[in-house]
Write a protein that binds this DNA or RNA. Structure first.
Length: 428
RNA sequence: GUGGGUGUAGCUCAGCUGGUAGAGCGCUGCGUUGUGGUCGCAGAUGCCGCGGGUUCAAGUCCCGUCACUCACCCCA
Protein backbone atom coordinates (compact mmCIF):
# COMPACT_ATOMS: atom_id res chain seq x y z
CA UNK A 1 0.00 0.00 0.00
CA UNK A 2 1.37 3.35 -0.97
CA UNK A 3 1.95 5.68 1.93
CA UNK A 4 0.39 9.11 2.18
CA UNK A 5 2.47 12.25 2.54
CA UNK A 6 1.53 15.49 4.21
CA UNK A 7 0.37 18.19 1.79
CA UNK A 8 3.14 20.35 0.39
CA UNK A 9 4.68 22.85 2.73
CA UNK A 10 3.13 21.78 6.01
CA UNK A 11 5.59 20.82 8.72
CA UNK A 12 5.30 17.98 11.23
CA UNK A 13 6.98 18.50 14.56
CA UNK A 14 7.79 15.18 16.16
CA UNK A 15 9.77 14.37 19.31
CA UNK A 16 12.26 15.45 20.37
CA UNK A 17 11.96 18.67 18.37
CA UNK A 18 8.26 19.02 19.13
CA UNK A 19 9.22 19.60 22.79
CA UNK A 20 11.18 22.64 21.75
CA UNK A 21 8.44 23.80 19.44
CA UNK A 22 5.91 23.66 22.25
CA UNK A 23 8.30 25.44 24.58
CA UNK A 24 8.85 28.23 22.06
CA UNK A 25 5.13 28.67 21.65
CA UNK A 26 4.65 28.91 25.41
CA UNK A 27 7.55 31.31 25.80
CA UNK A 28 6.36 33.64 23.07
CA UNK A 29 3.09 34.24 24.87
CA UNK A 30 4.61 34.43 28.36
CA UNK A 31 5.39 38.09 28.26
CA UNK A 32 1.91 39.05 27.05
CA UNK A 33 0.30 36.94 29.76
CA UNK A 34 2.45 38.62 32.40
CA UNK A 35 1.49 42.02 31.02
CA UNK A 36 -2.23 41.66 31.58
CA UNK A 37 -3.23 40.63 28.09
CA UNK A 38 -6.21 38.28 27.93
CA UNK A 39 -6.43 35.17 25.81
CA UNK A 40 -8.78 35.14 22.84
CA UNK A 41 -9.65 31.94 20.99
CA UNK A 42 -10.72 32.39 17.41
CA UNK A 43 -11.87 30.28 14.46
CA UNK A 44 -9.26 29.29 11.89
CA UNK A 45 -11.60 30.11 9.02
CA UNK A 46 -13.61 33.23 8.36
CA UNK A 47 -15.65 34.81 5.60
CA UNK A 48 -13.40 35.63 2.67
CA UNK A 49 -14.77 39.14 2.72
CA UNK A 50 -13.14 39.78 6.11
CA UNK A 51 -9.68 39.54 4.58
CA UNK A 52 -10.59 41.31 1.36
CA UNK A 53 -11.81 44.29 3.36
CA UNK A 54 -9.41 44.05 6.27
CA UNK A 55 -6.09 43.06 4.77
CA UNK A 56 -6.70 44.75 1.44
CA UNK A 57 -7.29 43.43 -2.04
CA UNK A 58 -4.07 44.91 -3.35
CA UNK A 59 -1.90 42.74 -1.08
CA UNK A 60 -0.21 39.57 -2.27
CA UNK A 61 -1.66 37.77 0.70
CA UNK A 62 -5.20 38.34 -0.52
CA UNK A 63 -4.47 38.22 -4.22
CA UNK A 64 -2.68 34.92 -4.43
CA UNK A 65 -1.94 33.32 -1.08
CA UNK A 66 -5.30 32.51 0.46
CA UNK A 67 -6.82 29.09 0.87
CA UNK A 68 -10.36 29.93 -0.19
CA UNK A 69 -13.22 27.53 -0.79
CA UNK A 70 -16.99 27.50 -1.00
CA UNK A 71 -18.83 25.71 1.77
CA UNK A 72 -22.04 23.75 1.43
CA UNK A 73 -24.11 26.85 1.95
CA UNK A 74 -22.38 28.48 -1.01
CA UNK A 75 -20.49 30.90 1.26
CA UNK A 76 -16.94 31.87 0.42
CA UNK A 77 -14.69 30.79 3.27
CA UNK A 78 -10.98 31.42 3.78
CA UNK A 79 -8.48 29.72 6.06
CA UNK A 80 -7.09 32.64 8.05
CA UNK A 81 -3.87 34.02 6.55
CA UNK A 82 -3.21 36.36 9.49
CA UNK A 83 -4.66 37.16 12.89
CA UNK A 84 -5.48 40.82 13.24
CA UNK A 85 -8.55 40.95 11.00
CA UNK A 86 -10.11 38.02 12.85
CA UNK A 87 -9.46 39.63 16.22
CA UNK A 88 -11.09 42.85 15.03
CA UNK A 89 -14.12 40.95 13.76
CA UNK A 90 -14.50 39.17 17.10
CA UNK A 91 -14.02 42.37 19.09
CA UNK A 92 -16.74 44.09 17.07
CA UNK A 93 -19.09 41.11 17.09
CA UNK A 94 -18.75 40.65 20.85
CA UNK A 95 -18.97 44.40 21.55
CA UNK A 96 -15.63 44.47 23.34
CA UNK A 97 -15.03 47.87 21.75
CA UNK A 98 -17.99 49.25 23.76
CA UNK A 99 -16.37 48.30 27.07
CA UNK A 100 -13.27 49.42 28.91
CA UNK A 101 -10.42 50.51 26.66
CA UNK A 102 -7.85 49.60 25.64
CA UNK A 103 -8.81 45.99 24.97
CA UNK A 104 -5.64 43.92 25.30
CA UNK A 105 -5.66 40.44 23.82
CA UNK A 106 -3.32 37.67 22.81
CA UNK A 107 -3.87 34.64 20.61
CA UNK A 108 -2.02 31.80 19.03
CA UNK A 109 -2.55 29.10 16.50
CA UNK A 110 -2.18 28.09 12.89
CA UNK A 111 -2.38 30.39 9.89
CA UNK A 112 -2.42 29.44 6.24
CA UNK A 113 -0.80 30.87 3.16
CA UNK A 114 -0.57 29.11 -0.18
CA UNK A 115 2.99 30.15 -0.92
CA UNK A 116 5.87 28.21 -2.38
CA UNK A 117 7.53 26.70 0.70
CA UNK A 118 11.15 27.27 1.62
CA UNK A 119 13.35 27.52 4.68
CA UNK A 120 11.17 29.04 7.41
CA UNK A 121 8.20 29.52 5.15
CA UNK A 122 5.33 27.08 5.46
CA UNK A 123 1.80 26.84 4.19
CA UNK A 124 0.61 26.22 7.70
CA UNK A 125 2.45 28.46 10.11
CA UNK A 126 2.09 28.95 13.83
CA UNK A 127 1.92 32.41 15.22
CA UNK A 128 1.55 34.05 18.62
CA UNK A 129 0.03 37.50 18.43
CA UNK A 130 -1.18 40.35 20.59
CA UNK A 131 -3.49 43.27 19.88
CA UNK A 132 -4.10 46.37 21.99
CA UNK A 133 -7.21 48.13 20.73
CA UNK A 134 -8.66 51.51 21.58
CA UNK A 135 -5.70 53.68 22.51
CA UNK A 136 -3.27 55.81 20.54
CA UNK A 137 -1.08 56.40 23.58
CA UNK A 138 2.54 55.89 22.52
CA UNK A 139 3.09 54.01 25.78
CA UNK A 140 0.98 51.24 24.26
CA UNK A 141 3.09 51.18 21.09
CA UNK A 142 6.24 50.84 23.15
CA UNK A 143 4.68 48.26 25.47
CA UNK A 144 3.56 46.04 22.62
CA UNK A 145 6.99 46.16 21.03
CA UNK A 146 8.64 45.52 24.38
CA UNK A 147 6.43 42.45 24.91
CA UNK A 148 7.65 40.99 21.61
CA UNK A 149 11.24 41.84 22.42
CA UNK A 150 10.94 40.28 25.87
CA UNK A 151 9.33 37.17 24.42
CA UNK A 152 12.32 36.51 22.19
CA UNK A 153 14.76 37.29 24.99
CA UNK A 154 13.03 34.89 27.36
CA UNK A 155 14.20 32.09 25.09
CA UNK A 156 17.78 33.28 25.29
CA UNK A 157 17.84 34.70 21.78
CA UNK A 158 20.28 37.56 21.25
CA UNK A 159 21.02 37.58 17.52
CA UNK A 160 17.92 39.42 16.38
CA UNK A 161 17.24 43.09 15.92
CA UNK A 162 14.27 45.38 15.72
CA UNK A 163 13.53 47.51 12.68
CA UNK A 164 11.29 50.46 13.35
CA UNK A 165 9.64 53.21 11.37
CA UNK A 166 6.46 55.23 11.05
CA UNK A 167 4.22 54.95 8.01
CA UNK A 168 2.25 58.13 8.74
CA UNK A 169 -1.51 58.46 8.85
CA UNK A 170 -4.37 59.35 6.54
CA UNK A 171 -3.42 63.01 6.93
CA UNK A 172 0.19 62.82 5.79
CA UNK A 173 0.53 59.59 3.81
CA UNK A 174 -1.50 60.53 0.70
CA UNK A 175 0.70 63.56 0.01
CA UNK A 176 3.84 61.50 0.53
CA UNK A 177 2.48 58.70 -1.62
CA UNK A 178 1.92 61.14 -4.48
CA UNK A 179 5.42 62.51 -4.08
CA UNK A 180 6.89 59.00 -4.15
CA UNK A 181 4.83 58.03 -7.18
CA UNK A 182 6.10 61.07 -9.00
CA UNK A 183 9.65 60.08 -8.16
CA UNK A 184 9.11 56.48 -9.24
CA UNK A 185 7.60 57.47 -12.56
CA UNK A 186 10.98 58.91 -13.49
CA UNK A 187 12.75 55.64 -12.72
CA UNK A 188 13.51 52.85 -15.17
CA UNK A 189 11.41 49.94 -13.89
CA UNK A 190 10.17 46.67 -15.30
CA UNK A 191 6.41 46.47 -16.03
CA UNK A 192 5.63 44.43 -12.92
CA UNK A 193 7.35 46.90 -10.62
CA UNK A 194 5.74 49.80 -12.44
CA UNK A 195 2.37 48.24 -11.74
CA UNK A 196 3.32 47.92 -8.08
CA UNK A 197 4.34 51.56 -8.07
CA UNK A 198 0.79 52.33 -9.10
CA UNK A 199 -1.01 50.10 -6.64
CA UNK A 200 1.28 50.31 -3.63
CA UNK A 201 4.29 52.56 -4.26
CA UNK A 202 5.67 52.13 -0.74
CA UNK A 203 6.31 48.49 -1.45
CA UNK A 204 8.76 49.36 -4.23
CA UNK A 205 11.08 50.85 -1.62
CA UNK A 206 11.48 47.40 -0.13
CA UNK A 207 12.60 45.77 -3.40
CA UNK A 208 15.74 43.75 -2.79
CA UNK A 209 17.15 43.91 -6.32
CA UNK A 210 20.18 46.12 -6.69
CA UNK A 211 19.13 47.52 -10.04
CA UNK A 212 16.05 48.85 -8.35
CA UNK A 213 17.68 49.96 -5.12
CA UNK A 214 20.35 51.91 -7.00
CA UNK A 215 17.64 54.13 -8.43
CA UNK A 216 16.00 54.68 -5.06
CA UNK A 217 18.89 56.34 -3.25
CA UNK A 218 17.31 59.75 -3.62
CA UNK A 219 13.75 58.56 -3.12
CA UNK A 220 11.64 60.58 -0.69
CA UNK A 221 10.97 58.83 2.62
CA UNK A 222 7.79 58.77 4.66
CA UNK A 223 9.77 59.48 7.77
CA UNK A 224 10.67 62.92 6.37
CA UNK A 225 7.08 63.73 5.50
CA UNK A 226 5.26 62.93 8.73
CA UNK A 227 2.64 65.42 9.88
CA UNK A 228 3.14 67.09 13.25
CA UNK A 229 0.97 64.67 15.15
CA UNK A 230 2.60 61.59 13.61
CA UNK A 231 6.05 63.03 14.22
CA UNK A 232 5.23 63.69 17.87
CA UNK A 233 3.77 60.22 18.25
CA UNK A 234 6.83 58.61 16.71
CA UNK A 235 9.18 60.64 18.93
CA UNK A 236 7.30 59.58 22.03
CA UNK A 237 7.20 55.92 21.00
CA UNK A 238 10.97 55.95 20.72
CA UNK A 239 11.35 57.69 24.06
CA UNK A 240 9.21 55.08 25.79
CA UNK A 241 10.97 52.27 24.01
CA UNK A 242 14.20 53.43 25.60
CA UNK A 243 12.56 53.33 29.00
CA UNK A 244 11.36 49.79 28.28
CA UNK A 245 14.98 48.98 27.53
CA UNK A 246 14.38 48.04 23.91
CA UNK A 247 16.95 48.78 21.22
CA UNK A 248 15.99 49.38 17.60
CA UNK A 249 17.25 50.36 14.16
CA UNK A 250 15.59 53.11 12.18
CA UNK A 251 14.31 51.44 9.01
CA UNK A 252 12.70 54.17 6.90
CA UNK A 253 12.36 51.89 3.87
CA UNK A 254 10.69 49.03 5.66
CA UNK A 255 7.22 48.24 4.36
CA UNK A 256 4.90 45.56 5.57
CA UNK A 257 2.75 43.39 3.39
CA UNK A 258 -0.61 44.23 4.88
CA UNK A 259 -2.43 47.39 3.82
CA UNK A 260 -3.86 48.38 7.18
CA UNK A 261 -0.70 49.59 8.88
CA UNK A 262 -0.33 53.24 9.85
CA UNK A 263 2.18 55.11 11.99
CA UNK A 264 4.30 52.81 14.18
CA UNK A 265 5.47 49.82 12.18
CA UNK A 266 8.11 47.29 13.16
CA UNK A 267 9.71 44.00 12.34
CA UNK A 268 12.00 41.66 14.26
CA UNK A 269 14.70 40.22 12.05
CA UNK A 270 17.09 37.34 12.67
CA UNK A 271 19.90 37.34 10.08
CA UNK A 272 20.82 33.70 10.68
CA UNK A 273 17.61 32.49 9.06
CA UNK A 274 18.47 33.22 5.44
CA UNK A 275 15.92 34.78 3.17
CA UNK A 276 13.01 34.31 5.54
CA UNK A 277 14.55 36.39 8.27
CA UNK A 278 11.47 38.01 9.78
CA UNK A 279 10.66 36.32 13.08
CA UNK A 280 7.93 38.75 14.03
CA UNK A 281 6.35 41.98 12.99
CA UNK A 282 3.45 44.29 13.45
CA UNK A 283 2.29 47.83 13.73
CA UNK A 284 -0.49 50.27 14.34
CA UNK A 285 -3.70 50.25 12.36
CA UNK A 286 -5.98 53.28 12.48
CA UNK A 287 -8.65 52.50 9.95
CA UNK A 288 -9.11 48.75 10.31
CA UNK A 289 -11.87 48.69 12.93
CA UNK A 290 -14.11 51.13 11.08
CA UNK A 291 -13.38 49.44 7.78
CA UNK A 292 -14.84 46.28 9.31
CA UNK A 293 -17.91 48.07 10.58
CA UNK A 294 -16.77 48.81 14.13
CA UNK A 295 -15.94 51.92 16.13
CA UNK A 296 -13.36 54.45 15.03
CA UNK A 297 -10.68 52.90 17.20
CA UNK A 298 -6.99 52.57 16.58
CA UNK A 299 -5.10 49.48 17.56
CA UNK A 300 -1.60 48.07 17.52
CA UNK A 301 -0.40 44.51 17.50
CA UNK A 302 2.09 41.98 16.26
CA UNK A 303 2.46 38.42 15.11
CA UNK A 304 5.46 36.31 16.07
CA UNK A 305 6.38 33.29 14.01
CA UNK A 306 6.73 30.21 16.18
CA UNK A 307 8.28 28.12 13.40
CA UNK A 308 10.89 30.72 12.58
CA UNK A 309 11.64 31.47 16.21
CA UNK A 310 12.43 27.80 16.72
CA UNK A 311 14.75 27.93 13.70
CA UNK A 312 16.40 30.99 15.23
CA UNK A 313 16.94 29.16 18.53
CA UNK A 314 18.50 26.30 16.62
CA UNK A 315 20.70 28.68 14.64
CA UNK A 316 21.94 30.19 17.88
CA UNK A 317 22.72 26.79 19.33
CA UNK A 318 20.15 27.15 22.10
CA UNK A 319 18.52 23.80 21.43
CA UNK A 320 17.54 21.47 22.87
CA UNK A 321 15.49 23.90 24.91
CA UNK A 322 13.88 21.04 26.80
CA UNK A 323 15.99 17.93 27.16
CA UNK A 324 13.97 15.63 29.38
CA UNK A 325 10.39 14.51 29.45
CA UNK A 326 9.98 13.24 33.01
CA UNK A 327 11.71 13.75 36.34
CA UNK A 328 11.22 10.24 37.61
CA UNK A 329 11.24 6.82 35.97
CA UNK A 330 9.87 3.87 37.91
CA UNK A 331 11.24 0.37 37.22
CA UNK A 332 9.37 -2.65 38.57
CA UNK A 333 11.37 -5.86 38.67
CA UNK A 334 9.42 -9.10 38.65
CA UNK A 335 5.70 -9.83 38.61
CA UNK A 336 5.05 -9.00 42.26
CA UNK A 337 6.52 -5.51 41.85
CA UNK A 338 4.14 -4.45 39.11
CA UNK A 339 1.15 -3.48 41.22
CA UNK A 340 3.04 -1.64 43.98
CA UNK A 341 5.01 0.16 41.25
CA UNK A 342 1.85 1.44 39.64
CA UNK A 343 0.54 2.64 43.03
CA UNK A 344 3.82 4.40 43.52
CA UNK A 345 3.57 6.00 40.08
CA UNK A 346 0.11 7.31 40.89
CA UNK A 347 1.34 8.69 44.22
CA UNK A 348 4.23 10.50 42.54
CA UNK A 349 2.03 11.97 39.85
CA UNK A 350 -0.49 13.12 42.44
CA UNK A 351 2.34 14.74 44.35
CA UNK A 352 3.08 16.81 41.24
CA UNK A 353 6.05 14.95 39.77
CA UNK A 354 6.27 14.10 36.13
CA UNK A 355 6.82 10.36 36.17
CA UNK A 356 6.83 7.41 33.80
CA UNK A 357 7.04 3.66 34.31
CA UNK A 358 8.87 0.81 32.62
CA UNK A 359 6.50 -1.64 30.96
CA UNK A 360 6.61 -4.98 29.15
CA UNK A 361 8.68 -6.51 31.96
CA UNK A 362 11.88 -5.04 30.69
CA UNK A 363 14.99 -6.01 32.56
CA UNK A 364 16.69 -3.45 34.78
CA UNK A 365 19.47 -2.92 32.29
CA UNK A 366 17.15 -2.25 29.40
CA UNK A 367 14.82 -0.12 31.54
CA UNK A 368 17.72 2.01 32.71
CA UNK A 369 18.64 2.52 29.11
CA UNK A 370 15.16 3.82 28.47
CA UNK A 371 15.43 6.13 31.50
CA UNK A 372 18.77 7.30 30.24
CA UNK A 373 17.35 8.03 26.82
CA UNK A 374 14.66 10.13 28.47
CA UNK A 375 17.30 11.87 30.56
CA UNK A 376 15.19 11.30 33.66
CA UNK A 377 17.20 12.68 36.59
CA UNK A 378 15.89 10.08 39.04
CA UNK A 379 15.05 6.40 38.78
CA UNK A 380 13.17 4.28 41.30
CA UNK A 381 13.80 0.55 41.29
CA UNK A 382 11.33 -1.78 43.00
CA UNK A 383 12.09 -5.50 43.02
CA UNK A 384 11.50 -8.59 45.15
CA UNK A 385 14.22 -7.65 47.68
CA UNK A 386 12.79 -4.18 48.21
CA UNK A 387 9.22 -5.41 48.53
CA UNK A 388 10.30 -7.90 51.15
CA UNK A 389 11.82 -5.12 53.26
CA UNK A 390 9.29 -2.39 52.42
CA UNK A 391 11.96 -0.29 50.75
CA UNK A 392 12.87 1.09 47.34
CA UNK A 393 16.04 2.09 45.51
CA UNK A 394 16.40 5.74 44.52
CA UNK A 395 19.06 6.19 41.89
CA UNK A 396 20.53 9.54 40.86
CA UNK A 397 21.19 9.25 37.15
CA UNK A 398 23.80 12.00 37.00
CA UNK A 399 26.06 10.72 39.73
CA UNK A 400 25.07 7.08 39.43
CA UNK A 401 24.71 6.92 43.20
CA UNK A 402 21.79 5.10 44.70
CA UNK A 403 20.26 4.74 48.13
CA UNK A 404 17.73 2.31 49.57
CA UNK A 405 14.97 4.09 51.44
CA UNK A 406 11.56 3.37 52.92
CA UNK A 407 8.74 2.80 50.46
CA UNK A 408 6.61 5.24 52.51
CA UNK A 409 5.26 7.63 49.87
CA UNK A 410 5.36 10.73 52.06
CA UNK A 411 9.02 10.31 52.91
CA UNK A 412 9.83 9.39 49.35
CA UNK A 413 8.16 12.53 48.00
CA UNK A 414 10.12 14.69 50.41
CA UNK A 415 13.39 13.07 49.47
CA UNK A 416 12.74 13.42 45.74
CA UNK A 417 11.64 17.02 46.11
CA UNK A 418 14.90 17.83 47.91
CA UNK A 419 17.05 16.04 45.37
CA UNK A 420 15.41 17.38 42.25
CA UNK A 421 15.31 20.86 43.72
CA UNK A 422 19.00 21.04 44.52
CA UNK A 423 19.71 19.64 41.07
CA UNK A 424 17.86 22.53 39.43
CA UNK A 425 19.78 25.00 41.58
CA UNK A 426 23.06 23.51 40.41
CA UNK A 427 22.07 23.93 36.81
CA UNK A 428 21.27 27.63 37.16
C1' G B 1 4.04 31.70 -10.47
C1' U B 2 9.88 31.75 -12.00
C1' G B 3 14.95 29.74 -11.49
C1' G B 4 18.91 26.45 -9.12
C1' G B 5 20.14 22.02 -6.08
C1' U B 6 19.19 17.17 -4.00
C1' G B 7 16.72 12.18 -3.64
C1' U B 8 21.33 5.67 -1.23
C1' A B 9 19.95 2.13 6.13
C1' G B 10 15.73 5.10 11.42
C1' C B 11 19.23 9.86 11.04
C1' U B 12 23.63 12.46 8.62
C1' C B 13 26.00 11.22 4.43
C1' A B 14 30.17 8.51 1.15
C1' G B 15 30.01 5.64 -3.35
C1' C B 16 36.06 8.42 -8.86
C1' U B 17 35.53 7.90 -15.69
C1' G B 18 29.14 1.91 -15.40
C1' G B 19 31.17 -4.22 -12.82
C1' U B 20 26.40 -7.31 -7.95
C1' A B 21 25.81 -1.58 -1.69
C1' G B 22 29.28 1.38 2.56
C1' A B 23 30.65 4.67 7.03
C1' G B 24 29.39 7.34 11.43
C1' C B 25 25.39 7.93 14.72
C1' G B 26 21.22 5.32 16.48
C1' C B 27 19.01 0.40 17.35
C1' U B 28 19.33 -5.04 19.25
C1' G B 29 22.27 -8.59 21.91
C1' C B 30 26.67 -10.11 24.75
C1' G B 31 30.75 -8.71 28.33
C1' U B 32 26.86 -7.96 34.22
C1' U B 33 23.55 -13.44 37.88
C1' G B 34 18.48 -6.95 39.22
C1' U B 35 22.07 -1.23 37.15
C1' G B 36 22.13 3.30 32.18
C1' G B 37 25.70 6.90 30.45
C1' U B 38 32.19 5.38 28.86
C1' C B 39 34.57 1.01 26.66
C1' G B 40 34.99 -3.79 23.90
C1' C B 41 32.70 -7.60 20.83
C1' A B 42 28.70 -9.38 17.80
C1' G B 43 24.24 -8.41 14.94
C1' A B 44 19.88 -6.51 12.18
C1' U B 45 18.21 -2.94 8.59
C1' G B 46 18.15 -0.96 2.03
C1' C B 47 12.40 -2.07 -4.40
C1' C B 48 19.90 3.36 -4.20
C1' G B 49 12.35 8.30 -4.88
C1' C B 50 9.24 6.26 -9.14
C1' G B 51 8.76 5.00 -14.57
C1' G B 52 11.15 4.28 -19.06
C1' G B 53 15.68 4.11 -22.19
C1' U B 54 21.06 2.94 -23.52
C1' U B 55 24.25 -1.40 -22.18
C1' C B 56 26.52 -8.03 -21.59
C1' A B 57 25.99 -5.11 -17.01
C1' A B 58 22.94 1.08 -14.22
C1' G B 59 23.08 3.67 -7.37
C1' U B 60 26.40 5.53 -11.34
C1' C B 61 24.79 7.57 -18.20
C1' C B 62 20.06 9.64 -20.91
C1' C B 63 14.71 11.06 -20.84
C1' G B 64 10.40 11.73 -18.04
C1' U B 65 7.95 12.12 -13.41
C1' C B 66 7.20 12.91 -8.25
C1' A B 67 9.04 14.61 -3.72
C1' C B 68 12.10 17.55 -0.92
C1' U B 69 15.14 21.81 -0.71
C1' C B 70 17.32 26.82 -1.59
C1' A B 71 16.54 31.45 -3.91
C1' C B 72 13.24 35.24 -6.52
C1' C B 73 8.37 37.25 -5.38
C1' C B 74 6.07 37.84 -0.69
C1' C B 75 5.94 37.19 4.40
C1' A B 76 5.85 34.94 10.40
Amino acid sequence: MASINAPKGVPDYVPPRSRDFYHVQESLSGSARRSGYEYIELPVFESTELYERGVGTSTDVVQKEMYTFTDRGDRSITLRPEGTAGVMRAVIENRLDKGALPVKLWYRGPFFRAERPQHGRYRQLQQVGVEAIGSVDPIIDAEVIAIADQSFRSLGLIGFHLELTSLGCKECRPAYRAKLQEFLSACDLDPETRERANVNPLRVLDDKREVVQAQLVQAPLMIDSLCDSCQRHYDEVRAYLSIFGVEWNEAPRMVRGLDYYTRTTFEFVHPALGAQSGIGGGGRYDGLMSELGGSELSGIGFGLGVDRTLLACEAEGLTPLIDHTVDIFVIPVGEEAREPAVSLLVGLRNAGFSADISVDNRGVKSALKVANGMKAPAVLILGPDEIKSGSIIVKDMDSGEQVTVSLEIVELVQLLQRNLHTKKEDES
